[in-house]
């Protein structure tokens, strides 16, 4: 039995490495992105094998799903800008200046040295050294939730998570500014089969995403995984032009972006005082407070990820020629 499992591990590890190489070497950029998505899903599978289902869910939903959508959207835009929209393959989209072979070899040697160092460090590291397991296990009863990863994310290491939400906020601000006034590539038109699919699945995705969020307090799942699934609804609505962002919606969008950060920081400050520091939730309210934060953070994550996909800020459309600012 152990041998079968080891064989599976070796096969999976081999596929992951092969896909990583393939996604960097295949010439068609579309194929590269598809290979990358498969790579991400197989990595998630490997993490399930390493008993890390939370990480696997987050990688599959955010690291692979949303990232893949972002990459494909960018590819579509590049094809549109370079006038290669109708072509079967996506090659040579960004201008390529040849790099001298010597530089490439020097880089490769440099990478090889770093890798060698990392491998030596990894192999030389003490096996199963002391981790934080016992500390977390000790503190679990006070955390307010039953799932260790959620306890770490929202209670023990809540500062990290707060900063993570801030990073997401910063990203959406940057993307809105960078792409200000950029014209949009025409959306691929989707027919009635797609509409039937959307009608059937979108409501169910909303419920399933929220279920993932709720389940996070006692089992794998939580704000990031649930938020990514909810963001998928936004992505599909944007892709099919069922929802088109308008300048008038910006205010609401901004509120949604800061809702998570605001609620997180607000709760942290409110519970402090009276001998407690920030994020030291009163024990009897810890569960409700964590769920409250998670719920609001999920809304922010979902809206922010969808906004990152959509890109530019929806400003009032100028006259077609007025955009020509070169």
């Amino acid at each position: 039995m152990t041998d079968a499992a080891t064989l599976f591990d070796l096969l999976l590890a081999g596929s992951v490495i092969a896909l990583a190489i393939a996604s960097l070497t295949v010439r068609d950029m579309f194929a590269a992105i598809v290979l990358f998505v498969i790579f991400g899903l197989l990595s998630a599978l490997a993490w399930v094998r390493l008993s890390a289902p939370d990480v696997a869910l987050a990688e599959a939903a955010i690291g692979t799903g949303v990232t893949g959508a972002l990459l494909l959207k960018t590819l579509h835009h590049l094809r549109y800008v370079t006038g290669k929209l109708g072509e079967g393959q996506a090659r040579d989209l960004t201008p390529i200046a040849t790099v001298p072979a010597g530089v490439i070899w020097a880089n490769a040697a440099f990478c090889g040295m770093i890798t060698l160092g990392l491998a030596l460090a990894f192999l030389g590291a003490p096996q199963a050294g002391p981790g934080f397991d016992s500390l977390v296990a000790e503190a679990m009863p006070a955390s307010g939730v039953d799932h260790p990863v959620t306890a770490v994310l929202l209670n023990f290491r809540a500062y990290d998570t707060l900063m993570e939400v801030v990073v997401l906020l910063a990203a959406v601000i940057a993307v809105w500014q960078i792409e200000r006034g950029l014209s949009d590539a025409p959306a691929p038109a989707l027919g009635e089969v797609w509409q039937g699919f959307a009608r059937l699945t979108l409501p169910a995705i909303v419920v399933v995403g929220t279920y993932l969020l709720w389940k996070g307090s006692e089992a794998p799942g939580g704000a990031f995984q649930g938020g990514a699934v909810l963001a998928a609804v936004g992505l599909l609505l944007l892709l099919s032009r069922i929802y088109v962002p308008r300048p008038a919606h910006r205010g609401l969008a901004r509120w949604a972006f800061v809702l998570g950060t605001g609620a997180f920081a607000g709760v942290a400050l409110l519970v402090s005082g009276g001998g407690r520091v920030a994020f030291e939730y009163p024990a009897q309210h810890a569960y409700s407070l964590i769920l409250l934060i998670e719920g609001l953070v999920t809304i922010s994550i979902a809206v922010t990820l969808a906004a990152l996909f959509h890109g530019r800020e929806p400003v009032a459309a100028p006259a077609p020629e007025g955009r020509n600012d070169t």
Binding site: F132, R157, D160, T161, A174, L305
Partner: peptide, 25 residues
């Protein structure tokens, strides 16, 4: 398993998508 590195990786995934989104923009 130790939940702390798991939480770190989840944080990393979210930070990475933020960076990716900005880079792609």
């Amino acid at each position: 398993p130790d939940p702390v590195p798991h939480a770190l990786v989840i944080t990393g995934i979210v930070v990475m998508i933020s960076a990716t989104a900005v880079a792609l923009a």
